[in-house]
Design a protein around this nucleic acid. Structure first.
Lengths: 203, 203, 203, 203
DNA sequence: AATGAATGAGCTTTCATTCAT
DNA sequence: TATGAATGAAAGCTCATTCAT
């Protein structure tokens, strides 16, 4: 967590720092990201940086938190609770939320995707804390409900399906960022994907 | 390419060095992997290392070559050429090959998967050379053939499907490494996956 | 060029570093001169050195710049422009300037002389830039003027004479540094030399 | 001194090694000259090199000895002893000897000149042994005789004149190597130089 | 005598973090 | 709070020399 001093900063400065840091973490993986470059680019003193954050990890962690927060905003729109929702329709909305997030915050999207793909599990858990498990749990619960409502084939390994779905979701974001897909094409893509999953997984 | 001296080494020593290096590259990304640690662990002098390899990149590159070589061994078993092969059966064999490789050489699997996921495109291409394009081309050709034989739904975005399939293949390997799946469960898993794809993508 | 940080240093520290570096470059040629030794001797951290200079070459280059600057100070006293100057008298003054520089800054003298004698032409030009050509051009121009004013024998190979004169000038500096000549002896020496050149070269 | 094994080598091999080493020491100063490069170029094993020589210094020293030997051959032709020789004529012959040596053995010439100009006096003396003093003594003796025969101006600092003459001799060799002077131009050059010295130094 | 692998001290350089003002 | 200089462990790499066969 950033120190109190960081939050006392004028908004403009605080946001400038975050914007620069986001660029850096988008372009380089954690170990290659350079504090020197960040402070230089942001126009602040090195010492100041350490007044705001306890270190590189702290800054990175904060940015991941921001990403999670933003993403959650989009996911909130997905009305899971409402009854009688078709499972695949729900899944579609979850993917749409992810895609919109990726479109509106491409840097945050890329950064958090990269973290997801990181090999250093210890580091990952250190940064993500419990939110990774939460995300997994969310998907599994979704699948569980789908199964209970008889929408999903029996005998599927939900853990594995959830694992794959997460990867596919990440891949979606990457593909969109890479290809700079139009809104319309995106919908077509998603339609095909959901259709494939529906045909593949339904009871 | 390692220098001749490396290949002249007694097998035991050569393999020890590779084993240690594999561990290192499994645990750390390229930039964080340490030659000092490797030579210490392998019990050789630093100078010796540089008699064998021209540098860190050379060693890494060699390990990736080993991985490609081993993986190719498994892929050779896949009989693509034979006529009348069902597309999804073929895909299944390709995934099986990947899974076997991942099971038999988990370190190599992890290392090459991680390289695939690296964001440093220049580095990636430097190490992988053309084999990345080859792999993409292979999948696209497979899909193309499937389409021509009328096995695949019309109107699919092959680029995207190939993209997803690669990711899924990598995810498969990861899942297997993580869970230390039994042979039997693996087959079940794969069966479900292929079934899903078949139902989702067939004409 | 040293970084700004170097020039912001307290004078004492800055001069200590330069003094130590001068000793090092006096005693060892560039490739053998050791940054490790310099920072140890100067009592600064290795990292600090790289805050001040971009590398070994930068430091060396700066010292050569200092030498050039100091030497120029002495050469400024030589009134070349004024009319009716006897060529040999002018040459004498140029040599005197060199000698005074050598006496007052023996280390700088030795370092720059050694650079002049280096066989690595690429390196030399990298460090000296155009000032080497300038120096040659200066001498040739001097000779040219001498010839036009009818002070020099006809048919001399000016290129060769200039070549020799440069060497003699360097030799003078070396001799003086080696022998720690008194002011008086120096004048006598120089008088003889100029006399020799005058008798040898005049029309 | 090379070890006995070196002198037991077949002539062809011995000479090949020396030729390669000469090239290396011509192109690089001692510290930059590389044993690895030499053995590779000469086609011998590294271990073999150390059977022939005790180290890099030993090889270099041997080459300098060869140079001294060759140069002495040329100097032997100079008939110092004979009575009534004009001092400057004698000097001319000494220079001619040097020039011929430079022309016939340009590598050896360059190598020994570079050593002469080296800054590391300790190293120089270690390599040259007493021959440097001998050379100085030779010149001083020459001047002495010239003075006694009344050919030289009184009151000259012989040490200094000898110092300069050595430098001029070296410069001559360099100039010739650089410009690839024709035999004829060389004579003209030398004529001018001697004339200059004669006019400058005679009684 | 010939070989070439093995050695390790030493090099320059980097960079997150700490310190002093 | 803001600053930017100071730090030093650690990195990749080189190369003359030694060693074992």
């Amino acid at each position: 967590m950033p120190k109190e001093t960081f939050f006392n900063l004028p908004t403009e400065k605080r946001e400038r720092i975050i914007a620069v840091a986001m660029q850096e973490f988008k372009n380089f993986e954690f170990s290659q990201a350079s504090i020197s470059r960040i402070v230089k680019e942001a126009g602040i003193a090195k010492g100041s940086f350490y007044q705001y954050f306890s270190g590189k990890k702290d800054l990175f962690s904060h940015i991941i938190d921001l990403a999670a927060e933003k993403k959650l905003d989009y996911l909130k729109d997905v009305q899971i609770g409402s009854e009688n929702r078709d499972f695949f329709e729900l899944l579609r909305e979850v993917y749409v939320a992810g895609l919109k997030f990726s479109r509106d915050y491409p840097e945050l999207g890329e950064i958090s995707d990269n973290l997801m793909k990181s090999k250093d599990e210890k580091f990952k858990e250190e940064i993500l804390g419990t939110s990774m498990q939460k995300s997994d749990a969310f998907l599994t619960a979704l699948l569980q409900r789908g199964a209970e409502q008889g929408e999903l084939k029996r005998g599927l390994d939900f853990g594995f399906i959830a694992f794959i779905m997460t990867r596919v979701s990440i891949a979606l974001g990457e593909y969109v960022r890479e290809k700079e897909y139009s809104e319309k094409n995106m919908e077509k893509l998603l339609g095909d994907l959901i259709e494939m999953l529906r045909n593949g997984l339904r009871a």
